[in-house]
Design a protein around this nucleic acid. Structure first.
Lengths: 325, 325
DNA sequence: CAACCTTCTTTACAAATGTCAACAATCAAT
DNA sequence: ATTGATTGTTGACATTTGTAAAGAAGGTTG
């Protein structure tokens, strides 16, 4: 009466089985042994299947962003700075003993949930570059949003600390199931002339033009200290950073200096850089800024004042500092 | 330097903490003890918090519907019957030893994932009534879809086996964060005259009118056996069911009889019923049918042939029977 | 046929988790 | 101040889970 085939194991029939087992475990709350009995498999197999489910994104565990942005601190910050949403990563211990990497990981994780809250189908999303952005890309769960595009905001550049710029963009795109527009140019060139020439190449021009019509940006903000990402990636020299600081630079966003009011400061290596402009960012209706660490207090305020932020993700200490300043 | 308040515990600051802990546990993969240490709480507290997170929908564990509809059986059924998607619940043991309640629970769980796949923001969704629908409502995770409305398809009626019709609709609405339009009338009246009078009441008329412009329906299909839901809920008598069967009724959907081709059979208690019409269902562009059990084979085929189904959720045995028939 | 790969099983053990009961601290309000 | 409710803690315990190692079964390939 049934088909004679013993095991109907065409390729992805396995997927269907995995999903069903995931439902029993995560949904119904059955124990692994119960499931094993039911399907006449060993418990070890069930364990492996469940791991598979998580790794392959068949089950997706996500945290509701609304709740992350629900604290009173969040609301206070929204009001004080005119932001749309503020998501706060709260790290347990107050005495600063948490390592920066732990803190950053948590901020990144919160950011990744915030992103899923903010992104809408069809959005064109600009992704910047840096330690923070890399952490965010890494933390994002696989969760497609139909019709999205991801654009790389900063030219490709190697850095000891961080995967290259296009790697970040591609990872975000993969996680979102988005089409990815990479920027086929280095982030920094040796002379302004060369940069300028490159920018007039049709292909590059097209890529840069796209950045002026973004729906959303995901960026971090850097400080001007000597261990800043700009220096670590050989984009700016220590001397240039020093000079920028003297001209009032309070922060770095998308490899561009901004002053305390968020206005752009076009000083070296400004014209050797290939990246989205401050105006490109400003033009996007949704602008997510992800920041971790009190040393970025001024930079964060600057970015906000400059209209470069609509949604903020920060750690609790920074958030408190923002309120109290 | 900081605010003097010892614990910034305004109402939902706790939610923010819960989310963060959920992220560490589910996202980062930290162990409960590690989290407890980090936040200086006891492990028991963490356990409780995580339970809270799940119960309150702060973490949401969902299974990707695509994978549920990925088996070759699904694809075969889509092709054979011209359906858009078929989701199959695969219960472990083949010898039929699985209790119907277990099987139904699994089908319902699969259905609830399917629903999340199918529903789009702004949809007006009709929800029918019965054992199956109740199970689906129960299995659905809390997952809001913006701008959705839920409409009760069948008037309110008590039944020993199943929570009343409006309860099902309301539960689905709650889970989807949808506005809920209940039907303020009994499902069955003692006479056609009374039913007719009631249907001309403006309020009822408005409610019924809404049902002709649904974006999606969620229904099950009943058989004509004597333990059918229609009888259990005192909507149709055994005699009436018998009569309907003689007139060729092959199934019941939304308290309406349909013949083997899915055409409506307007026999008793047809005109004493207050519920959506077969045409209302037919008019919806997305029609999800949830069925469990081989005894509904004919009824399911009938509903499909009548154009009352675009998406199907079924258990594996039924799915195989549909393929082999 | 033999070698090999993949997949699942069994067994065993260590670690993590859920749960209980009894107890402390805090806060509100009588 | 006493009472009660809430919230979290401790310690103890049984269960569940993750993981490793060794082997069986089936299919593929040279």
């Amino acid at each position: 009466m049934n088909k004679p085939s013993k095991l109907p194991t065409v390729k992805s029939d396995k997927d269907a089985l995995l999903s069903n087992i995931a439902l029993l475990y995560y949904g119904e709350g059955l124990t692994q042994s119960e499931i094993a009995k039911r399907y006449k498999l060993s418990r070890v197999t069930i364990v492996n299947m469940l791991r598979d489910c998580r790794e392959r994104g068949i089950v997706e565990i996500r945290v509701d962003g609304q709740h992350l942005a629900a604290s009173s601190l969040s609301r206070d910050l929204c009001e004080k700075y005119g932001l749309q949403d503020v998501y706060i990563a709260v790290d347990g211990i107050e005495d600063g003993s948490t390592r920066r990497s732990d803190k950053l990981a948590q901020v990144a994780r919160v950011a990744s949930m915030a992103i899923l809250d903010i992104v809408e189908p069809g959005d064109r999303i600009g992704v910047a570059w840096g330690e923070t952005i890399a952490a965010v890309a890494n933390a994002m769960p696989r969760n497609s949003v139909p019709g999205t595009q991801v654009c790389q905001l900063i030219g490709s550049q190697e850095s000891a600390r961080v995967p290259a710029s296009e790697i970040c963009a591609i990872e975000v795109a993969n996680k979102l199931g988005a089409q990815c527009h990479t920027l086929h140019a280095p982030g920094i060139l040796s002379s302004a002339e060369l940069a300028s020439a490159l920018k007039s190449e049709v292909t590059i021009q097209t890529q840069l033009a796209r950045l002026s019509s973004l729906d959303m940006t995901i960026a971090a903000v850097g400080h001007l200290g000597r261990d800043t990402h700009m220096a670590a990636a050989d984009i700016a020299s220590i001397a240039e950073l020093e000079a920028a600081r003297h001209q009032g630079a309070a922060g770095i966003i998308c490899c561009r200096y901004i002053d305390g009011n968020g206005q752009e400061i076009r000083t070296a290596p400004y014209d050797r850089i290939i990246a989205a402009s401050i105006n490109d960012i400003k033009a996007a209706p949704k602008k997510l800024l992800v920041v971790c660490g009190n040393d970025r207090l001024d930079a964060t305020r600057a970015a906000i004042h400059g209209g470069l932020v609509t949604h903020l993700v920060a750690d609790r200490e920074l958030a408190e500092a923002l309120i109290n300043s």
